[in-house]
Simulated scan of single mutants.
Amino acid sequence: MDIQVQRFAVTNLRRRPVVIETGGFVAGLSPDTDNPYLNYATPLPGAEPTGKDVAALIGIFRERGLLPRLEFAPQAAPAVAPALRAAGFGIEAVHEYLLCTPRTLTAPQPDDALRVETPTTDEEYAALDAAISEAFGDVFPASAEGAARLRRTQQHGGAVRFVRDPQGGCAGGASCSPPAEDTAELSGVGTRPTHRGRGIATAVTAALTEAMFTRGAGSVWLEYSGEGSRRVYERAGYRPQGTRLYVSLPRTQQP
């Protein structure tokens, strides 16, 4: 599964507004933001980069004022992590990823109070972007660009879902990428702190996953941030599958 997830990562980055390929790496960049989580690279499965290849990749980020950063499944390209370490890259995190298949998907019991919807208006996309931002402690501030990215995800073959709060706003939601390589990535699952504990994240996760299976994906994968979120995803049928590595070049290591 690591190779399939890595192939997906490559295809998904090639969907970015700016794509640059060099030395076995694919960099996907978003010119409307310097957010490092929206500007990063990933290796091709089996890549064996040289020091010159890594230097060229660093240059792509530096000339744009961006943090040189990669996300990838290390087992799909075992030679990459040592080459990056030799160039001074440090580990940001190692995340386990979970996988759901049509066989393991567990849909929650219907609940009128947790009706999962697809946003259609600019106001709904903006409310969802704001809810996800609040859910993650405003690390990624809500913005018109964030709402637009959610809309593009829905329009370009992915899926976006949310649950309303009692006042008609957004209590929480998430998005899922368009399928590629027979899989899709579900991300940004967030619930406003005042609405947690109601099953919103599980309901949204199950709805998005089912939507991808309806579109023909053979699996959906995601990463979790802690044991609490892991239990949420396990209730929807997700199971441990592999790991993904996040690395970046510290500012002090850049020439």
Rank of each mutant, 00 (worst) to 15 (best):
D112N: 03
R69S: 15
Y40A: 12
D34F: 06
R62I: 12
P74Y: 10
A9I: 02
P82R: 01
L114S: 03
I20Q: 09
V19E: 14
L44E: 12
I60L: 15
L114H: 00
E96I: 15
P110M: 04
Y125I: 08
L66G: 10
F61E: 11
G28I: 10
G90A: 11
A41V: 15
G23P: 03
L29G: 01
V94K: 08
P43F: 13
D32Y: 07
P36K: 09
L67P: 04
L114G: 02
E48S: 12
D122V: 12
T50N: 09
P74H: 10
T106L: 06
L38G: 13
D112L: 06
A107I: 15
V26P: 01
L114D: 02
V116R: 03
P45L: 06
Y125P: 00
P102I: 01
T50R: 11
A77K: 00
L67K: 11
H95C: 15
V94F: 14
V10M: 06
F89K: 00
R15I: 01
P68Q: 06
G24N: 02
P102V: 00
A126V: 01
A127G: 06
A56P: 04
A126L: 13
P78V: 10
R14Q: 14
L44Y: 14
T11A: 14
G24W: 02
A93V: 07
N12E: 12
E63L: 07
C100A: 14
D53Y: 10
R62G: 05
T106Y: 00
G24D: 02
Y37S: 13
A107Q: 07
G65D: 06
P74W: 04
V26E: 05
A126M: 07
G51I: 01
L114F: 03
P36Y: 05
F72D: 13
V54K: 04
